[in-house]
Lab assay of single mutants.
Amino acid sequence: NLYFQGLKYMVPGARVTRGLDWKWRDQDGSPQGEGTVTGELHNGWIDVTWDAGGSNSYRMGAEGKFDLKLAP
C-alpha cells in the first residue's frame, strides 16, 4: 500500500496536500493548498498547519483512512 509506505516520511516539516480520503472541505484553503506537518504521527492521526492559515489533525491510518499525501 503506497500510503503505508509513505508514512515514514510523514514527519514534522514534511509538506502535504489532501489525499485519497479527504473529507474536510476547504480546511486546506480555497483553492486547495499545501501544508506542513507539525507533529508526530499518533494513533493514526497527524497534525498539519496549512499555508492558508488553519491547522488541524488528520487521519493517516486512523479508521483505515488517509486524508493526506506528500506534496509533489
Rank of each mutant, 00 (worst) to 15 (best):
L2V: 14
P72C: 15
G44N: 02
G53K: 02
W24K: 03
G6P: 10
D47A: 15
E63D: 11
W24S: 06
G6L: 15
R59V: 01
D51F: 05
G35C: 01
G29A: 05
P31G: 08
K8G: 10
L20G: 09
N43C: 15
G54F: 10
W24R: 03
G64W: 08
G6N: 13
P72Y: 13
D67Q: 03
S30G: 15
G33V: 04
N56Y: 15
E63A: 09
G13R: 04
T49K: 12
T38R: 08
W24Q: 04
W24G: 06
L70W: 08
F4M: 12
L20C: 15
V11N: 07
D26F: 07
Y58S: 00
R25Q: 15
H42C: 15
G19H: 05
F4S: 11
R18T: 04
V11I: 12
T36V: 11
V16D: 02
G54V: 11
G61K: 02
R15E: 01
W45F: 05
M10S: 03
E40F: 14
R15I: 03
Q5H: 14
S55D: 09
R59K: 01
F4N: 12
H42G: 06
D21N: 08
D51Q: 05
G19T: 05
G39R: 10
L41R: 08
T49P: 00
Y3I: 13
A71N: 07
T49D: 09
Y58G: 01
G35Y: 04
P31V: 07
V11K: 11
Y58K: 00
L41T: 07
W22N: 03
N56A: 09
E34F: 14
D26N: 10
D51S: 03
A14V: 11
G64I: 06
W50T: 00
N1P: 14
V37D: 01
G39A: 09
S30D: 14
P72K: 13
G44I: 03
V48W: 01
H42S: 11
P12S: 09
T36I: 09
N43R: 10
N1M: 11
E34W: 14
E40D: 10
K8H: 12
G53R: 00
M60K: 01
W50K: 00
R18H: 05
R15D: 03
Y9Q: 10
L7Q: 10
G54A: 08
Q27D: 09
T38K: 08
R25N: 15
W45T: 00
L20H: 14
A71D: 06
S55K: 12
Q27R: 04
L70E: 05
D51V: 03
R25D: 15
M60N: 03
K65G: 05
W24E: 07
Q32P: 15
R59M: 01
G6H: 15
G19F: 06
V37W: 00
R25F: 15
G54I: 13
F66M: 07
G6Q: 15
T38E: 05
G53M: 02
L20F: 11
V37G: 00
T36W: 07
R25H: 15
E34I: 14
D51I: 03
I46M: 07
T17H: 08
A52R: 10
V11W: 08
T38W: 05
Y58R: 00
Q27M: 06
K65W: 03
R25V: 12
P31S: 08
E40G: 12
Q5F: 12
D21Y: 06
G35D: 03
S30R: 12
K8M: 13
G29W: 05
Q32V: 08
G61M: 00
A52D: 08
E40W: 14
N1R: 07
R25G: 15
A14S: 09
G35T: 01
V48R: 00
R15N: 02
L7H: 09
Y3A: 14
G44M: 03
S55L: 09
W45H: 03
M10Q: 04
L68S: 01
F66A: 03
G64V: 05
G61E: 02
Y9I: 08
M60I: 05
R25S: 15
K69Q: 13
G44P: 00
T36Y: 07
K23N: 09
W45C: 07
W22K: 03
D51R: 03
D28R: 02
N56K: 07
V11Q: 10
P31N: 09
Y9K: 09
D51P: 00
S30H: 14
Y58H: 02
K65Y: 07
G44E: 02
L68F: 02
D67H: 02
S57I: 10
G35V: 03
R18W: 07
K23E: 12
W24H: 06
G33L: 07
T49C: 14
G33T: 11
S30F: 11
G53C: 07
M10C: 09
D51A: 05
P31K: 07
N1A: 13
P72T: 13
T38F: 07
Y9E: 12
L2D: 15
Q27Y: 04
G6Y: 15
R18Q: 07
Y3N: 14
E63T: 05
K23R: 09
N43T: 06
W45Q: 01
P31R: 06
K8V: 11
K65T: 03
R59E: 01
D26T: 07
L7M: 14
Q27V: 06
D26A: 08
D51K: 05
N1L: 12
G64D: 09
L70A: 08
H42Y: 12
G13D: 02
A62T: 04
E63Q: 12
P12M: 13
G54Y: 10
L20A: 14
N43M: 12
H42D: 09
M10G: 02
N1K: 08
S57E: 08
W50C: 00
V37F: 01
D21Q: 04
G61Y: 03
D47V: 14
D21K: 03
G6T: 15
L7D: 07
Q32T: 10
K23I: 14
K69S: 11
W24D: 08
N1F: 10
K65Q: 07
L2M: 13
V11L: 09
M60E: 01
T49Q: 12
G29L: 04
L41Y: 10
G33D: 08
F4E: 14
K8P: 10
G29F: 05
Q27K: 05
E63P: 00
A71M: 10
S55M: 13
K69P: 00
L20Q: 14
A14W: 04
D47C: 15
G33N: 06
I46A: 03
G54H: 11
R59T: 01
T36Q: 07
T17S: 10
Y9T: 08
R18D: 02
T49W: 07
Y9G: 10
W22Q: 04
Q5L: 11
G44S: 01
G54L: 10
V48I: 07
L68P: 02
V37L: 07
D28Y: 03
Y58Q: 02
D47K: 15
D26I: 05
G54P: 07
Q5D: 14
E34G: 11
P31E: 08
N56Q: 08
P12W: 08
G19I: 06
K69T: 10
V11F: 09
A62R: 04
G35R: 04
A52T: 10
K23Y: 05
N1S: 12
P31A: 08
A14R: 07
E63I: 05
S57M: 11
N43Y: 10
P31W: 07
K65F: 08
V11D: 03
T36M: 07
W50I: 00
L41K: 05
A52G: 09
G19A: 06
F66N: 01
N43Q: 11
A52W: 13
D21L: 03
D26M: 07
P31C: 12
V48Q: 00
G33W: 06
L2H: 15
M60P: 01
G61T: 02
K23S: 10
Q32H: 13
V48A: 00
Q5Y: 11
R15L: 02
